[in-house]
């Protein structure tokens, strides 16, 4: 008498999917570690904040936007060209 396989192929596939999903979720939530507010000190440093010098960022993007044709996804440049 042939014994029934413990897990069918589809069961294995389902298990693998669940494991993959769990792995993705745990990576996405930084391996399950919770960062307390008092641990954000370094993250609050101006060097870690993109918005800490908006004038510089604007001036840089505006200058590059008038010299290179492929803008986008790097901050607002405002209107007008100031180019030629």
């Amino acid at each position: 008498m042939e014994s029934e396989p413990v897990c069918s192929k589809s069961t294995y596939g389902g298990l693998l999917s669940v494991i993959a999903l769990c792995a993705c979720v745990s990576v996405f939530t930084a391996c399950g570690k919770k960062i307390k507010s008092w641990q954000r000190g370094t993250l609050a440093h101006p060097c870690m904040t993109e918005d800490s010098r908006p004038e510089e960022l604007f001036a840089k993007q505006h200058m590059l936007g008038a010299r290179e044709s492929t803008q986008g996804a790097s901050g607002e440049t405002g209107g007008g060209c100031g180019c030629n």
Binding site: G41, T42, L43, H45, C47, M48, E50, T70, Q71, G72, A73, S74
Partner: peptide, 28 residues
């Protein structure tokens, strides 16, 4: 029609040293 996408990372090695990196890809 333009498409721009970027990924960036900011990392603090210590409380004194910081590194920021950015890569952007564009097509239109």
């Amino acid at each position: 029609i333009r498409h721009a996408m970027a990924v960036s990372v900011r990392h603090a090695f210590t409380e004194e040293w910081f590194l920021a990196g950015n890569y952007r890809f564009y097509f239109d």
